[in-house]
Design a protein around this nucleic acid. Structure first.
Lengths: 351, 351
DNA sequence: GGAAAGGGTTGACACGTTTTAATGACTTGG
DNA sequence: CCAAGTCATTAAAACGTGTCAACCCTTTCC
């Protein structure tokens, strides 16, 4: 039996695209409150009524208006994920971990990328704040003013991702980049290198700064000074940046070894060196960072420093949602993973 | 009831995190409507008043409630972007194009990935519908029921991304994958291959099906039958899938040449072949698809089929936002790009 | 048989913003 | 000096949902 629209003036426009809870209620012969209960606490509704309402929902193609829900509830059921670089497989792996956990626990993820720009970071965070997200996972661009402060003041949970926190009043999940840098350069030194180049991105990025510190630490441990390390800084940590760095290196004397602050840089460096006829690892040894999937298939299998990417995303999300779902009992944690050296051909002097 | 001096009961909770337009209004000594005007049509407000309101906004740390705006407006100012695979640089490049254009035109992008799962696609689209996005860009997982139909009925603009449309009533932006497959296999044939393997993903994916059709077309043009093409289908179009395919190939007689339906597959294949001591291109020639950045730095520089990825994203977004901003004048377009063969070492028999 | 209890449903209000028509103040032209 | 206009501001009414106290009806208990 199809109800001809004997619509009273109370529910004027049941046209497509504007089907609301009221239309459903009218169509099912119940009150709007009952429809709301079917949607949010089905157990409180008698099975027969519920079935009727659910049929009405299907027949009218009703889709709940998230804005109204969020407005009424004062908070949404989504979290924000702000990463540094969409083009870096490291971050997309992390994002996969985040999405999996969030989806398991009934949260939607709003994914945004700052691209390393402080400005874009602030703009995106503002959008997230306007959306009233429950919490935010962020790999911050380093800068003076902490953009997340605003969020925390507004009661939005914040977890730092791939970034340790100086404060004890928030969660963070990170990998020890100083140790990673030390591993990488220590390994190069072990292989006999004495003149090492560090190819890195803007030192405002914590990842870059820490890996560099680790490199220095390894030098010190080997009894060498900082001047044993040449530094090449490029603006973007991608393959293009690596190519640029390699070209600069080729203009002068080549170093014994090159440590790139991530694998994208290393792949770019590798490509230009090989094109120029430089033997890797014969003339120069090379190591990257992150151990992204492509490194194993590189022209010369690339040594790297592995991080538990997917797990990083999963655990960070667990912490965030714990805080969201249970703010009172939540205890802030600072999780720090240890990275792992992965030796392949590119760094083996006598390989 | 008149308000006693100071905080009246009309504006009860000016505590952090709940600063609304009303608190700002009270603090600036104007009405809520004026604050709204400052936010949305600043030119209608006298400079002095505007300054006062803007100061109040800063001092109270007011952030507009997007849910309320959206609710009132009936639509948000964001668009949804639904891609097939976050882990594929092809799609993240497309996403960069989308974000750039959207940001230029004042829209926010909600990025989601279906991961090739029909179920996840539907769930994500539902979330987008609940968020009342203005439009959706989608690379659909192929299936019987068209999930986007619901969106279009609700008045949400939909543009197909990397997918031509059979209907004339919507926009689409795509690259001719049949031509691409033909280019790739035609090239392999030119290089002397007669026994070719096609490594591809689920044939429900249009990309896979079309590239396969193109391959067949190239065979026909060369006077060969379909049996000259062995097909290896793997469940996921990533490097792991490629490795799996290569292992299967190694169990029998190797083909002359391998065409992989994307570069991730090709990189996985390449890696396993090289480890097994197979010479590429000496024993087997190889070509991929997409020409992602990493292919150039692969163990053997990988031949591929290039698509205008970033442009794909830009143009699709232009079309979508044209439709959103100007629904009446908008004319639906089906844009089809032609792919381009990129020959590197991996496919050159006499290289 | 009456009171209490309980499940199921309802109606009305609140959430924070935008918008519209109306109001007030101030300027201009006659 | 008044009428007509301009400009800035305001009050009030939506938008669609969730919540909560109140209500009805049936069942249970004494």
């Amino acid at each position: 039996m199809s109800t001809p629209s004997g619509d009273g003036p109370a529910v004027p426009r049941p046209r497509a695209g504007t089907v609301g809870i009221k239309h459903v209620a009218q169509h099912a012969g119940v009150s709007p409150g009952t429809v709301s209960n079917v949607l949010n606490r089905p157990e409180r509704v008698a099975p027969a009524t519920r079935a009727r309402v659910e049929r009405a929902i299907r027949e009218l193609g009703f889709v709940r208006n998230g804005s109204a829900s969020t407005l009424r509830a004062g908070q949404s059921s989504s979290i924000g994920l702000m990463i540094l670089d969409l083009g870096n497989p490291f971050f997309t792996d992390v994002a996969r971990g985040v999405e999996d956990v969030a989806s398991e626990r009934g949260y939607a993820v709003i994914l945004a990328s700052s691209g390393g720009s402080e400005d874009k970071e602030r703009r995106n965070l503002t959008v997230l704040a306007e959306q009233r997200v429950r919490g935010v996972l962020i790999t911050p661009v380093e800068h003076e003013g902490d953009h997340t402060e605003m969020l925390r003041q507004r009661g939005v949970a914040v977890v730092l991702l791939d970034h340790p926190t100086p404060r004890a009043n928030q969660c963070s999940v990170a990998v020890d980049d100083v140790a990673g840098g030390e591993l990488a350069v220590g390994h190069l030194l072990e292989q006999g290198a004495r003149d090492i180049a560090l190819v890195t991105g803007p030192s405002v990025l914590r990842q870059c700064a820490d890996r560099r510190r680790g490199a220095h630490r390894a030098l010190r441990a080997a009894g060498l000074g900082r001047d044993a390390l040449r530094e090449i800084t490029v603006p973007a940590m991608n393959a293009r940046g690596g190519q640029e760095a390699a070209q600069r290196l080729l203009e002068g004397d080549l170093p014994d070894a090159i440590f790139c602050a991530n694998d994208l840089l290393a792949l770019g460096v590798l490509r230009v060196l090989l094109q120029a006829g430089v033997k890797v690892p014969g003339d120069v040894t090379l190591i990257g960072y992150d151990d992204i999937e492509f490194t194993a298939a590189a022209a010369v299998p690339l040594s790297s420093v592995r991080q538990p990417t997917y797990q990083l995303g999963r655990i960070a999300t667990d912490l965030l949602l714990d805080e969201c779902d249970n703010p009172s009992e939540h205890a802030h944690q600072q999780v720090m993973f240890q990275p792992e050296l992965v030796v392949r051909e590119s760094s083996l002097r006598h390989g």
